[in-house]
Design a protein around this nucleic acid. Structure first.
Lengths: 230, 230
DNA sequence: CGGGCATTTGAATAGACTCAAATCCGGTGG
DNA sequence: CCACCGGATTTGAGTCTATTCAAATGCCCG
């Protein structure tokens, strides 16, 4: 589910990417309406992106971990449609659009790599659509935790220890549910011994059970060593 | 909300795009697992894309009208993650990935145009995430109808007359709701005189009211000629 | 004309939400 | 160092929307 840049290409990019820029907590990288003239990659920290809708509602569209791309919200008309801000102090790299265009002429493969990254983003969002549309509250949250855990791991952190800088309200908003529901389900999972909670640190004991919930909405019987047969 | 290719670029593309290929009703353009080696553009007809999830559930990820791009589901690992099939007899154009790469060296701007198209897709999906996560059933359906209507119009059809080749089950699935709910809401809108229903043809009388529902979840009082003031 | 899918309608259920309030926490100023 | 404040989180109770289950009706196609 991750959407990071791969190994070799990362190197290639770093050549033409601006050196890291530090970003303070709560600071905005850009706002809706700002000119869209570069892409961002998280170097360190945690970011969140959100939209403001016509009716005034705020929607948290995503969280971004180190290594991930950000800001591809609306290159379409040259103006951002999202807000992007740091939840923790961190730093980002910037890739000017102009550089991409220039680059395209030199190295077509690199452009393809960028396309792949973008495509992965699309794929990720389709997963999210399924989650939002079809899953119950428990399943949504289980998937969210596992996704976050996997991405933390990809970003070089411990796999089963998640630290989040976002509030439960942020999570609830992102997953399309009420804060109270998040809280209740989290307590429920704790009571089942599936995870431990300490403020904004969660440790996944029994990842297998959580994965079962993520997949089926509840804990399934003895999972055979075979995923076949419907 | 549309994600079509714009004017001039469309021309540029058509040069290197294969001539139209006809597709019969129910025929699949590709299946999950197929090699990802080209992009598709609808020339005529109506298409739907869907995914099969681990748990066996089918999720309709989108419908595609003439002029729109399809098949950008997972360039990531070179293999499709979606199924794409025709709901009506129609035809498509194909754009081989190899051509893109070749092209990139000649005309960087064209690649940017492609990026923009993709970005628009991402933007569209964020809208969809909001819809799926935050809206009630009536609001979801209202937005779906308006989106379909707008896109039909962009595709050259009549703006307020929607003809769909998809079943209500397809729509329900796509919007994350039950078929019965679709039916009930549709009847409700008909009873309010907002639209007329004839099998799979819907005509939007009172687009304004439908837009109000799409925006606020219900019909709002007298809409002033000013959208300001929160 | 019949069969099977698509759609509509009805009734009961359930899951998640809203409202309300208590508790916990980190940070602040005295 | 400690009391206090405001935001964040948890907990409880009642409500409501959309679902599920069941069944009737309609319609296309052979």
């Amino acid at each position: 589910m991750a959407h990071t840049l791969e190994d070799n290409s990362l190197h290639a990019f770093s050549a033409l990417v601006n050196h890291a820029r530090p970003v303070k907590r709560k600071q905005a990288l850009f706002r809706a309406g700002d000119r869209f003239d570069r892409l961002y990659f998280v170097r360190a920290g945690l970011f969140k992106s959100y939209r403001l809708h016509e009716d005034g509602a705020l929607h948290v569209t995503g969280f971004h971990l180190p290594g991930e791309m950000m800001g591809l919200d609306n290159m379409n008309n040259g103006v951002h449609s999202e807000y992007l801000e740091a939840l923790d102090t961190g730093s980002v790299c910037e890739l000017p659009l102009a550089a991409i265009e220039k680059l395209a002429r030199v190295d077509g493969a690199l452009v393809m790599q960028l396309m792949r990254t973008v495509s992965a983003e699309v794929s990720r969002e389709k997963d999210m659509m399924y989650l939002l549309g079809k899953m119950g509250a428990k399943q949504k949250l289980a998937n969210f935790l596992i996704d976050l855990s996997d991405r933390s791991y990809t970003s070089g952190l411990h796999r089963n220890k998640i630290h989040f800088g976002m509030t439960r309200a942020d999570i609830a908003n992102h997953l399309g549910m009420a804060v109270e529901t998040i809280s209740r389900i989290l307590q429920g999972l704790r009571d089942q011994g599936i995870l431990t909670i300490n403020h904004r640190d969660i440790e996944l004991t029994h990842r297998d059970l959580l994965e079962s919930i993520a997949k089926h909405g509840s804990i399934m019987p003895i999972p055979h060593r075979d995923r076949a047969s419907a």
